[in-house]
Amino acid sequence: MDPIEEDLAPAAREEIERACTLGWRQLRAHTPWGDTFEGFTPEGRGVCFERSYLWEGEPGGDIRVEVTVYEPQAYEAGVSLVRTIHRETA
């Protein structure tokens, strides 16, 4: 892992944890949705955080959470993580 990726990876892990704090019921009204904002990695590198909530398949099913952390000039070199929030049955 190169030094930039070593810095971006912890920021991406932290952001995906935050992105998944809401449950399916809270997110269903806001899916699909995405946002990009500027912030800093643990080492102080200025980066963009991109977060998206998408339907995994059919609307109303599982929600796919995507997070990408990248330097503004190098999206392709960013770190991306994906998780699924499973539909609650109740």
Rank of each mutant, 00 (worst) to 15 (best):
M1E: 12
M1Y: 14
A11W: 01
A12Q: 03
A12G: 12
E14W: 06
A19C: 11
C20K: 05
C20I: 06
T21P: 00
L22E: 14
R25K: 13
Q26T: 12
L27R: 11
H30L: 15
T31F: 01
P32L: 09
W33S: 14
D35S: 14
T36M: 04
T36Q: 05
T36H: 00
E38I: 09
E38D: 14
G39T: 15
F40S: 10
P42C: 06
E43F: 08
R45T: 13
G46T: 14
V47A: 00
V47L: 01
C48I: 04
E50N: 03
E50H: 03
R51H: 02
S52N: 11
S52I: 01
Y53F: 09
Y53S: 01
L54N: 07
L54D: 10
L54P: 02
G57N: 10
G57L: 08
G57W: 06
G57H: 10
G57T: 13
E58D: 15
E58G: 03
G61I: 03
D62H: 03
I63A: 08
E66K: 08
V67F: 05
V69L: 02
Y70F: 15
Y70N: 00
E71M: 08
Q73G: 09
A74R: 06
A74D: 12
Y75E: 08
Y75N: 02
E76H: 11
A77L: 12
G78S: 07
S80E: 15
I85W: 00
I85V: 07
H86K: 15
R87W: 02
A90E: 14
